[in-house]
Each structure stands twice: as C-alpha cells, then as structure tokens.
Nucleic acid binder design. Structure first.
Lengths: 211, 211
DNA sequence: CGCCGTCTCTCTCTAAAGAGCGACCTTGAG
DNA sequence: CTCAAGGTCGCTCTTTAGAGAGAGACGGCG
C-alpha cells in the first residue's frame, strides 16, 4: 500500500489467461518504477487480491470467470472509492468498457497494444490520470447520440440472440407476444437494423451481447 | 535450425498481442531445454520468420491480421512438409482448429491453459508427437457424425449472419430467392436450428463464422 | 457405366416477423 | 402537478421465413 512512497508502483494483475499474466508480469517487472505484487485468475480472486494488497493499480481483464470486469469494478470501488483501475480487453467493441469507465475505472487498453502503451497506461493510472486510447476514444464519440437500450430491451435482445421466437420470448418473460414484438421493434429501431438477425449482428459488434 | 542438436528446442512465436508473446517468451526462456528465436506479430511475419529461422516448433495464434492461422499453416507446410506447428487459440469452439489439424498442424492448445500444459505441448510437438488437449478432443468427438456445411452454404451462412434477407442473399449470390431459401433450409437442418437467428448463434458457437 | 452429393430452380402453404397505429399505467424528474 | 419515459397490451396490414416435395445439371467415384 505504501509502495508508491518507495517510488515503485505496486500492481495487481487480474486475467484468466496465465500467458497474459506472465506477459504483463514480465513487462512490468522489467521496469524500475513498478512491480507486480499479486495475480488473480478470476473475478473473485481479483477482489480478494485487491483487498489484501491495496495496490496502486489494478489491471483488470474485462472478461473473466466467476465475476466479469464490470462487477469487479463495482465491488472494488465500494471497497476503495479511490481505487485506480485499468481495464484491459481484447475487443474494442465492448459496450462494457463504457460501463466500467462511467463507473469510475481510470482507463482501459486493448490487449493488442504495444508494450510502451501498456506501460504508460499503467503509469498514467497510477498517478490518477485517466488514460484514453485513441481507438476507444473514437468509439466513445461514435456512441454519442446513439440511443441506448433499456434493461428490458437488453433482456429481450439476449433471447433474440439465442434464436427465440417472439412467442417464445413472450412466454419466458411472462408477457404477451404483442409486447414482445413491441420490444423487438424498439430494438430494431435503436440499433438501426432491418431484421432481428441483423440486430443480433449489430449488437454483437457493439458488445451489447456476448454470444 | 540445428538447435535441436544442441539440445535446445528453438521456438518461433506468432501472435498479434505483444502481451501474449512476452508471456510465452518469458515462460519458454525460463526453461533450460527451449528458447525463443523469433517473434511475429501477424501472419505474413510468421511465414517469413519460419522460413528464415526454421525453428523446431512454430507456435501460432489462430486469429491474426494479414493472414489467419489456417492460411499460415498451409503456407508453412508448403515450405516444409515436416514443420511442427502448435496452434494456440482463445476459443475452444473454433471450427478452424480442425481445419488446421487435418492440414497437418501437430497440436493446439487454448490460451487459458496453465503454464505446465503449454510447455509440455511445446515439448510434445517438438518431438513430432501430436498434442491433444482434453477439451478439444471432446469437441472433436462431438463434431463426429455431425453434418458439415458445404462451401456454398458457408457463404450463405455468412450473409445470414450479417442480417441479410433471403432476397438480399439471392441478389448478392446471383441466384433466385428460392435457391437461397433452399440453402438456408439446409443450413437450419444441419445446424439443428429452428430459425435463422438461432442458426447464427449455433454457427458462432461452433466457430463456423466470425462476426 | 450408375450412384451420390452439390447446386440450382420451381411450386404451394402456413407461420412468423415486422410496420404503423393508438392506448393505459407507473415512476421519477421537473 | 405535469410531463416524459418505460413497460404493457391491442389492432390491422404486408412482407418474409420456413416446411415440404420435386426435379434437372454437373462432377467425382466405385
């Protein structure tokens, strides 16, 4: 916790791929000004590790077993509202990124980022400066103005993506088929899609759903 | 090229994520019996690296820019039919795995595999022994007996996944709507799906298409 | 050679999807 | 209180999807 005072940034890594953890650890530990103090392989471990070590920076994979990135961000910020979290993800289309950032994550970066970018992102976040990658910044702008789906619509969308019919969706949500259609219609409009299948494609690209 | 004679397995890494390359490199170079001789960040580099270094083992990510894993496997085996290739992928549902293996790749493994498994896979492949992970072996058995899609059907499926209507698909492929329907119908039957949207979901799970 | 798989096309018919309406109720922000 | 938004339900209408069944053309293979 006092690592920063000694001039070294303490880092906790959370990623379900041992390979990625090794890679990050190797990169970080080669730097004079930072060190890895713990690693976690899933969401629950990540929370436990954070609580135990109170690192300067928590590097967090968005997709993990047990609890996904969004849930971990929430929980960690409950523990320490000043926590500095750097989100790391493979997919630049992930809607969850924005959810994390708006919840208080200090930055994100893509896994295909070059070494230098990853390291400077960690340094930025450790100093409480938000890190903004160009690719995702562009996405954020694109997303501006675009209508967001309601919770109910997301539920329906998930079922649509599984290939359910309107009637089936209605049954599962205990509503009438007409209402299901209304929701689907709203989804199509908001996603600017002509058919439900296209809606699924668009939603998947935007990371609204995970197949 | 003669690395094996000196008792060290020479390895070339091909992955578009610097983090993963670093992780693998760190793992491999910590071992006394193997070393990384080159790294590649995309498919073309991978081929070039292989040709230049002729490593004992080529560790290859299935999804890469420029050329994907399948294409690289083909090309490398053209260069050296005895090439020992270890496929590495994130998704265990990838249909491409089977394509690679049937083309002559010696093994595959998932990125979330533990260190030991990764290392023993490299050793196995270096000795020309096929490496078979339990999870994928199970998939292979599941796939047995299941009907495979024809090339034409894959084309249609791709368009279906993009949300196109039968009429639209017909126009793009220069066939009649009736024929498009016939193909879609065949796809639904083979994938055991009720609707086109479900077919897309199933196909995506199996890695037949990449959205 | 004949068989089989693939691709192509045609037809009918039913079920589902989607467009375009209006309407009611609740909840929360102003 | 008013107004907006979300969820619910209802209606009609046209278009699309999907089941089912048949058939011709082509190429590979035993």
């Amino acid at each position: 916790m006092a690592a920063e005072l000694r001039g070294r940034i303490s880092v906790v890594l959370a990623d379900d791929h041992p390979v990625v953890r090794d890679g990050l650890a190797a990169m970080v530990n080669q730097q004079a000004d930072m060190e890895v103090v713990a690693e976690a392989g899933d969401g629950e471990q990540a929370i436990a590790c954070y609580e135990q070590h109170r690192p300067d920076v928590l590097v967090l994979d968005l997709r993990m077993p047990k609890r996904d990135g969004v849930a971990v961000v929430q929980r960690v910020l409950e523990i320490n509202p000043k926590a500095r979290i750097l989100i790391m993800t493979t997919y630049d289309g992930d809607e969850d990124i924005f959810q994390c950032l708006s919840q208080g994550a200090k930055g994100y970066l893509l896994k295909d980022a070059p070494r230098q970018e990853i390291l400077s992102a960690i340094r930025a976040v450790s100093e409480d400066r938000p890190y903004t990658s160009t690719t995702v910044a562009a996405k954020a702008l694109q997303r501006m103005g675009k209508p967001s789906l309601t919770q109910r619509e997301l539920n329906v969308l998930q079922l649509v993506a599984e290939g359910r019919s309107n009637k089936d969706i209605a049954r599962r949500l205990s509503i009438t088929e007409g209402t299901a259609k209304t929701h689907v219609k709203a989804i199509l409009t908001k996603l600017d899609a002509i058919s439900r299948t296209e809606a699924v494609a668009v939603a998947h690209k935007r990371g609204l759903i995970h197949l």
